[in-house]
Every structure is written in structure tokens, then in C-alpha cells.
Amino acid sequence: MDKKIALFPGSFDPFTNGHLNTVERASVLFDEVIVGVFTNTTKKSFFSADEKKQLIEESIEHLANVKVVIKSEDLTVNIAKELDAHFLIRGVRNNLDYEYEKNIASMNRQMDKEIDTVFLLADEEFSNVSSSMIKEIASFQGDVSKFVPEQVNQALLKRYSKKG
């Protein structure tokens, strides 16, 4: 294993400043970080996969060793193997996140012993930010600009102004 490649999978609907912080921190730890825009089968997507990819790319353009891919319909460990990533990055905001992520990490490890999950604790300022709360606030024309990158804020404003 020459190059340390990490995959940060998620639905990123929308991509938040907490996600961005996790990617920035991971970019210092790994040679390459791949943000994987995945389909969450339990959620209805607000932005399309292509829209999410574009918004994330605009948000991370200052990070030379980070790229974004769209993947769906496969297990995370299979996609990691396909991308030659031996590490999965997960942001953890609180105890509930930890318990949930710990179980997934354990299952992933049982499916592929070459995959390790690295937990990055959320910085305090991002520990209460979730994509679902962002969408809820934005749907009522609340200001979410301090919780999301500017490009995402503009996309939310545009999308919700069309719905109103």
C-alpha cells in the first residue's frame, strides 16, 4: 500500500460546513481523499447526485488531493476496493453517531479486513449541524449561511424560492 487513499462516503444532501471540515482535516492525514456521493436508500434526495457532486467540487476546490465521485447501488466496502481506498472516513458529532458508525465500521471490517474506518470527531461548532436540519430551516426561509458553504447556500435559496 503505497498511497494512503481514504473514501468519505455519504449522501451529502446537502453538503455542510461540518462535512467540509471533515474533508479538510482528512486531506491532511491522507495522500488522497475521495468524497463518495452515495445513494441513501432510506432518504428521498433533495439535490440530484450531479448537483451534489458539483456543489462539493466547488466547495473543495482549494484542496488539491481531494476528488468527488458518484457511486450508487453497491456496498461501501466494494466501492472502496474499486477505488483502491483502504480507509473510510466518518465524521462523528455525538454518542448517537458514534454508536451507529461503530456498528457499520464493524460490519465493513468483517466484510473486508483491508478496510479500516477512521473516525474524526466533529469540531464543536459543527457538532449540532445535520443535513436534515439544514433542509428544514431552509424550507422555512431560515438563514443557513453559517452552516453550509456559500455555493450550497445559494443552491438552497434558489431551490426553495422556486417552491414558494
Rank of each mutant, 00 (worst) to 15 (best):
E73C: 09
V35N: 12
N78A: 03
V152R: 03
R109D: 00
N21A: 14
F38Q: 07
S161W: 00
E51H: 06
D123Y: 06
V129I: 15
L20P: 05
V92D: 01
D31L: 05
N108M: 08
K163S: 07
T39K: 15
L83T: 01
Q154H: 10
L121S: 14
L83M: 14
V37C: 13
D97S: 11
F140C: 10
F15S: 06
E73V: 00
E136R: 10
Q151V: 15
E136D: 14
I115K: 02
L83W: 01
D112V: 03
H86P: 02
L20Y: 11
A105K: 11
A26G: 12
L88H: 04
K158G: 03
F46Y: 04
K135G: 09
S130Q: 06
F12C: 04
I60T: 10
V23L: 10
D112W: 08
K44H: 12
Q154P: 00
Q154S: 01
N128L: 13
V144A: 05
E24F: 11
S145W: 01
I70L: 10
K52R: 15
E32G: 06
L29H: 06
E73I: 00
G36C: 12
V35M: 07
L63D: 08
D13V: 02
M133N: 14
F47V: 06
D74N: 14
K162W: 03
L7I: 02
S132Y: 04
S72Y: 13
T41G: 07
A26F: 12
A64M: 04
G10P: 02
E101I: 05
K53T: 00
V77I: 15
D50M: 02
D13L: 04
N40E: 05
A105H: 11
E124C: 09
V129T: 07
R159S: 13
E82I: 00
S161T: 07
N95A: 15
E57K: 10
S139I: 09
V148W: 12
V28G: 06
A155G: 09
I34Q: 12
V129F: 00
